[in-house]
Design a protein around this nucleic acid. Structure first.
Lengths: 193, 193
DNA sequence: GTCTATATAACGATAGAC
DNA sequence: GTCTATCGTTATATAGAC
């Protein structure tokens, strides 16, 4: 499963990342992590204080990765509308859901300020980034001056996060795509009144 | 906790509904259900085949309740826009999340067609209801003919479901409200181009 | 219908040998 | 740094008395 040269602590973090994405925090057991990482009980408690500590390391890395991915499209070329469209349409494994957003449904994550912090910060920063792009679009006359950047940014992010919910409920990415399509049709600069 | 006259099986279902909402399926144990229902081990396995069977009864009831609540506002008075606004702005315990939508992040729910079915059906029927209202609005000239009812309906539902995610991440309902506000501003019939 | 007793496995963590 | 052994608790379910 794992090639030589990857450290045990590295394998533990990567396995935890996968399991948190698939099963959430409550649904992920140390035993499952150890099996996937091909590591023994002792290794985990040597490198990490326990399940919450290991999960924190995993969540931080996933959060960092998600922020980078988002910035990759939002900071790309194109008009404000095009960059938001690129964000909404970027390749996604829709049925797997959002590795960060899904954690908000985990009671133990929400109960812990430390575990919730990277989730909150990640979504918040992407939201701020989108809000700025909307304001940019207003300055350029691409979006109506009446639009509130912060509010539109929340709508964009919510459409994505909620799209995952609809898709997983139906077992098909179609509802996610429909939601994105609907939002883009409302947002389109040349939308008929 | 429970007044006389409420049957044990009733208390079991209600307790399960609460716990599924708070902690999801994976995070809810029979023991926790029994304690909350003030029932013994034997009662639960007398009335239900096991945890999945009890959960199914609980989910079905919650699904039914949610559909009725949605129909209550979507079938209310007002123009199509006003009815959609009423749906988006209806009173919600935002930080608790959606009792049906949250189940889509539960691996054991998604893995079971039987448990997923009521979740899927509920969201699908609300979506269809909203899609019809959008089409109505198009017929009446309140919405642009270019809008796709199905897509807009998915956007509306996704904004709500995603709004819960953003709110729970930040520990405040503000992001939910912002997302709704943003969507309504895009949807408003008198929106400036 | 409800109770207690019991069972098997998993959970999350610690101890101490190597 | 990793391993095995062990711990006390919980998860989920069954058995059988009342």
């Amino acid at each position: 499963m794992y090639s030589e040269g990857v450290s045990t602590s590295e394998r533990l973090i990567e396995s935890t990342r996968e399991l948190l994405w698939e099963r959430g925090y409550v649904g992920t057991s140390p035993k499952a992590i150890l099996e996937r990482a091909e590591a023994g009980q002792g290794s985990m408690y040597h490198h990490f204080k326990g399940k919450p500590d290991l999960a924190l390391a995993a969540i931080r890395r996933t959060a960092e990765e998600l922020r980078a991915t988002a910035e990759g499209v939002l900071g790309g070329p194109g008009t404000p509308y095009e960059r938001i469209e690129a964000y909404l349409r970027r390749e996604r494994d829709v049925l797997r859901g959002c590795p960060i957003g899904r954690l908000t449904m985990d009671p133990d994550i929400i109960a812990s300020d430390e575990l919730r912090a990277p989730v909150d910060e990640t979504l918040d920063r992407i939201r701020e980034r989108i809000a700025g792009i909307v304001e940019e679009g207003k300055d350029q006359g691409q979006f109506a001056p009446s639009l509130d950047g912060e509010a539109i940014a929340a709508t964009v992010l919510a459409t994505v996060q909620g799209g995952y919910v609809l898709a997983r409920a139906s077992g098909s990415p179609a509802a996610f795509d429909a939601g994105v399509r609907g939002l883009l049709s409302l947002l389109a600069p040349d939308r008929p009144a």
